[in-house]
């Protein structure tokens, strides 16, 4: 009798455990997850970088552009890599205005005098 009670007790624990895992990994997961900009899917990150480049293309404020990129990249090297990745994205590489904006931002990040990759500028 006691063995059966123990078995059912363990079964109940198991059922509760499964339910807790399901709840924790599904219903409560979004609340628990502290999703920041760096957690964005790659295509959204590319679009984010493109927006930063578009704004930079107008205001030429490199400090502001760097500040906007900070959530995605910790230092200038990472920012440069991000911009390069964005430029290599097929959705971007066919749009000359976007490439031009990204090229300008890349130039600015790499420092004055750095050349925009050939074939990038429209």
């Amino acid at each position: 009798m006691e063995n059966r009670r123990l078995q059912w007790f363990l079964v109940a624990i198991g059922a509760g455990l499964v339910l807790g895992l399901i709840l924790g990994w599904s219903m409560f997961a979004r609340k628990a997850a502290d999703l920041q900009l760096q957690d964005l899917r790659e295509d959204y990150q590319v679009d984010y970088v493109l927006m930063v480049a578009t704004i930079y293309g107008q205001d030429k404020d490199l400090a502001a552009a760097r500040a906007r990129l900070m959530p995605l990249a910790e230092d200038t090297e990472e920012m440069i890599d991000l911009v390069k990745q964005a430029m290599a994205t097929p959705a971007i590489s066919g749009v000359s205005n976007d490439l031009q904006a990204l090229g300008l931002l890349l130039n600015a990040l790499q420092g004055a005098g750095a050349a925009v990759p050939m074939g990038v500028m429209a």
Partner: peptide, 8 residues
């Protein structure tokens, strides 16, 4: 079990 599952 539920508490253990949630904690995990």
């Amino acid at each position: 079990g539920l508490v253990m599952g949630l904690i995990f």
